[in-house]
């Protein structure tokens, strides 16, 4: 058992066994959220997040931290939390050359228009990320930014909308 050759054999066995173990995944083996998906989520409006990513973004602080770092590098515009004096729901934010406004639909009061306007910027954002204070980061795809503006209609119970109305939320456009 203690012969040098047996000790070497044990080392080789360990490597073989561990490799078998690492590569033993079946369809049922859980997956960890990969950076590839996080990058697509932050970068590509066409990316549809997997349930695992959605779950991680709600519950996994490290994934949320990673996304925030990635967004801070990729942001077109950063609209920080509203001024401390702000009270009640926020219906307009303006910073970094962009303005976000909320308007209630006259057809249905439970539906709200989010208007995104480029005031003095020429870039076209394709994603809105809203981070609640110490909370999750929500993402909204801007399908159609043209002529310096975009409009997204949201249900009033939409999580993104709720977060947007909070003074302490931050908004990142990219």
């Amino acid at each position: 058992m203690s012969s040098p050759s047996t000790k070497d054999a044990e080392t080789i066995f360990q490597a073989l066994d561990q490799l078998d173990h690492l590569l033993s995944a079946t369809d049922e083996t859980p997956q960890k959220v990969g950076f590839n998906e996080l990058f697509s989520y932050a970068h590509n409006p066409k990316h549809v997040p997997s349930p695992a990513l959605n779950n991680a973004l709600m519950n996994d602080l490290s994934v949320r931290r990673d996304l925030k770092r990635l967004l801070s590098k990729q942001a077109l515009a950063h609209l920080p939390r509203a001024a401390a004096a702000s009270t009640g729901d926020i219906v307009e934010r303006e910073a970094d050359g962009f303005r976000l406004t909320l308007k209630v639909s006259k057809a249905d009061e439970t539906q709200i228009y989010l208007l995104i306007e480029a005031i003095d910027r020429s870039e076209s954002p394709s994603l809105v990320f809203v981070q609640e204070e110490d909370g999750p980061i929500y993402r909204l795809v801007i399908d159609d930014f043209y002529d310096g503006e975009a409009q997204i209609l949201l249900q009033s119970d939409n999580e993104v909308l709720k977060a947007l109305r909070k003074a302490k939320s931050e908004v990142i456009l990219r």
């Binding site: 406004t101 308007k103 639909s105 006259k106 057809a107 228009y113 503006e149 409009q151 209609l153 249900q155």
Partner: peptide, 21 residues
Amino acid sequence: RITKEDPDVRSVICLDGTAKA
């Protein structure tokens, strides 16, 4: 249904009364 909206808002066609443009 057709509804007059706020002039600041772009005209939009929605599906079945939902917020889906």
